[in-house]
Design a protein around this nucleic acid. Structure first.
Lengths: 238, 238
DNA sequence: CGCTCCGTTGAAACGGTTCAACCCACGTGG
DNA sequence: CCACGTGGGTTGAACCGTTTCAACGGAGCG
């Protein structure tokens, strides 16, 4: 690799690390050390990053593209736990809890990742407690997300989960009424803990009831209060 | 409070903090500081510790007794997320992620807790990175547990979750064939994401099929391989 | 062009919940 | 000491939401 290329890459890596929430508020000198220990990876679409049960010797940060984290049932059904995009870390659990990855990870698109080796990263944490606090914040937020997911799976039915997800998407996208599904409906089904057929029917239902308008991956929220009712009640009338 | 009493209490608190996994491997001087910042609490059975949405200004450690962490659906159904016993911390999420508690907490028995105020604890972490690493390990383990729970709820049916829980209990209790439910069956149902009626039927079913023998809260595993099949397949034949 | 992947729709089957009734063990108070 | 209420547990029957299986349409791509 030429020196020019390497410097250019370093600059990219640098800016990503500087902007990732995980490394928020860190001094420049810390960031330099992070750049020094990380290893870039380029993945084609659909590339397996790790499987459930693999030994984890470090964690990853998404530089570009997207990665899904998921579990698989014996009969092949998938449950998506997360879809991570630019600036988000994943695969940290084995770094701190030991043992192996609790789920699978594959790229959804052509993606660039940064890999942080366990030992080197832990040494950094020991030197710089601010980094530890950031990582604690990341894991805590993820725990919070999981409690919501468990709550939904256990206590709400599919229409409720769907409505909650649509409202969540709307909030993400500037509280707009027009929202854009950034994943396929099959993936959305898997994220909501159901199957494409059921999702299709539920979308049709809330569309027929005038809560939303459908247009492929383009959805317009018509009756937000009705969706909010659905999301909190978790049940569908009629 | 008399000086004697106070010293005695301090000794108890001391030994608990020294033995809690969260504070594993810490030097004595650190432990002293922990003792200094924590605030003991005594709870009767059924006492609410915090509710979902409450602002969290610190976390708790169970000194004795047990505490359940749970969510509630609008129609009153409970989903238990954890049941924590002696030496286990809970309520850490708001400490690091900010915001409020993601679930409710009540004591299942008369219990003693230690409360660690957020600010004082964060200052300790900043001074002693080893404590940060321990906390990261705790949160990571909890994330792993949640992935298993989500997997179960989404991909397995009730008999599968029940079998998995029985095997887990057996492993906890020295891999014995005779196991003892340490919670009521209603609570177990809530932990498995179902209702007491369904749990009762499923227990009856696996008992009729000769996999286990039932005797109140006393269960004997007869056919372990069959249970393991159930747990991994998640489906029940016949 | 023909393949595959995604999405949709229908009918039947399944698993779980709901509702209601009932039992039992336990503790309380008359 | 017995009557009574309460909470946990069990059982049956009807009901409901979701999955399964099968068939089909369309978009994208080699």
């Amino acid at each position: 690799m030429s020196l020019i290329k390497s410097m250019e890459m370093n600059r990219e890596v640098n800016s990503l690390i500087a902007s990732a929430p995980l490394f928020n508020g860190l001094q420049k000198s810390y960031l330099q050390e992070l750049v020094a220990i990380c290893e870039p990876q380029l993945l084609p679409k659909g590339q397996l990053v790790f499987s459930e049960g693999d030994k984890g010797n470090g964690f990853y940060l998404v530089q570009s593209g997207r990665v899904k984290i998921y579990k698989v049932s014996p009969n092949g059904k998938e449950q998506i736990l997360h879809i991570f995009g630019e600036g988000e870390p994943f695969g940290e659990v084995p770094v701190f809890a030991g043992q192996s990855f609790p789920a699978h990870a594959v790229s959804l698109e052509k993606s660039r990742l940064l890999f942080f080796p366990r030992q080197a990263f832990i040494q950094l944490i020991e030197k710089y407690p601010a980094m530890a606090l950031n990582m604690l914040a990341v894991l805590s937020r993820r725990l919070r997300q999981f409690t919501v997911m468990i709550d939904s799976l256990s206590l709400k039915e599919v229409p409720g989960r769907l409505a909650a997800y649509l409202l969540y998407l709307s909030k993400q996208q500037d509280d707009a009424k027009k929202i854009e599904l950034d994943i396929t409906k099959t993936q959305l089904a898997s994220l909501l803990g159901t199957i494409p057929e059921t999702l299709s029917r539920m979308l049709a239902k809330i569309s027929n009831q005038g809560m939303v308008e459908l247009n492929g991956s383009h959805i317009v929220i018509i009756d937000r209060p009705a969706l909010e009712d659905l999301a909190s009640l978790g049940k569908m009338d009629i």
